[in-house]
Simulated assay, not measured.
Amino acid sequence: MALRLPHTLPTLRTATGRFVLSPFTDAHVEPLAHILANDDIWAQGFGDGDHRPGTHAEIVAYIRRRYDGLRVFAIHYTGLTGGPLFVGTTGVTESHARTERAKIGRTVISPAFWGMKTNHEVKTALLDWLFARGAGRIECDVDPRNHRSLTSLTRFGFTVEGTRRRSSQRVDGTWRDIVILSLLTEEWPAARERTLRALAALAPVEFAV
């Protein structure tokens, strides 16, 4: 079964209903820029070796450049009485129909939602969709400094295949390694069941914003 992804993304709801994934649009650039102003995100190697933008206008320009042409979802939290709250993004950065391979990335979660299994819940919805569309292998590239992401992905079910050394050059001239992880379609049912069990144990949480 070849991997077939539509140009127009669907709207996805996560298993608990806490989050909705919808196509990323220009309206989401400003709220994403506010999230990317947080030091904790950049401290973990976010940015693929680029300099951190210094001003709000520079962050906006960075988002437009990095997100252009990609299949990216906006993530909204639905548990607030005032309406859905934008909390980040995730999406597909590469896809290859013949080899049934997809690479996911552009995952940014507001630090206010860290430690709440937000990433696992969102990824379950994204991977359900990708495997249903014919993906046989889903990959992630992660900066070795991003211990939070590496721990989260391996707990989720991804396998660390190795480190691509001297993978890309940073803007300061130094070289960056990348950890390569993958999850196969044959592994997804067991990984999915584990994640859903963990999500079912969550108590209802209201987030302070």
Rank of each mutant, 00 (worst) to 15 (best):
H120V: 01
R66M: 13
S110A: 15
D39K: 13
G47P: 11
I109D: 02
Q44N: 13
Y67F: 14
P53S: 00
P111C: 12
F73C: 06
D39V: 12
T55R: 00
V122Y: 01
I41H: 02
F46H: 08
V60F: 11
A102E: 06
M116G: 04
I41N: 01
R71D: 04
G54I: 07
V87W: 01
T78F: 02
I41F: 10
L70R: 08
A102Y: 05
S95M: 08
A57Y: 04
N119D: 09
R98V: 00
I75C: 03
T107K: 03
G82C: 10
I41Y: 06
L85A: 15
E58K: 00
A74V: 06
E121K: 01
I75M: 03
R106L: 06
F73D: 00
D68A: 14
W114G: 05
S95L: 03
G82S: 11
K117F: 13
V92R: 01
M116A: 12
G79D: 09
T78R: 07
G49M: 09
F86E: 05
G82N: 10
K123H: 07
V122I: 00
G54P: 04
G91R: 05
D48Y: 15
R98W: 07
L85H: 13
I41L: 13
A43I: 14
T78A: 05
H56T: 07
G115E: 04
G54A: 08
A97W: 09
P53T: 00
A102M: 08
H56C: 00
V108N: 06
K103W: 02
A43L: 15
V72N: 05
Y67S: 03
P53L: 04
F86W: 09
W114M: 04
D68H: 14
T55E: 01
L85T: 13
R98H: 00
H51P: 11
V92L: 06
Y77H: 12
R101T: 15
L85E: 15
D40V: 15
T81M: 14
D68W: 11
I104F: 00
R66K: 12
D48K: 13
G82F: 10
A112V: 09
T89W: 05
F73G: 02
P84F: 03
K123P: 03
F73P: 02
K123C: 03
A102H: 05
G88I: 03
T55L: 01
R101K: 13
G54D: 09
G45A: 10
G45T: 08
T99Q: 08
R64K: 15
H96R: 13
G83H: 10
P53C: 00
G45D: 08
T81S: 14
H96D: 13
R71N: 07
V108D: 05
R64Y: 14
V87E: 01
G45Y: 07
D50Y: 15
Y77G: 03
F86D: 04
G47Q: 14
A43W: 15
A61L: 07
A74I: 04
G91L: 09
R64S: 09
L80C: 12
R66Q: 13
R98P: 00
H96E: 13
I41C: 06
F46D: 06
V60S: 11
E94M: 12
F73E: 02
H96C: 11
T99G: 09
T55Q: 00
S95D: 11
G69K: 12
T90Q: 07
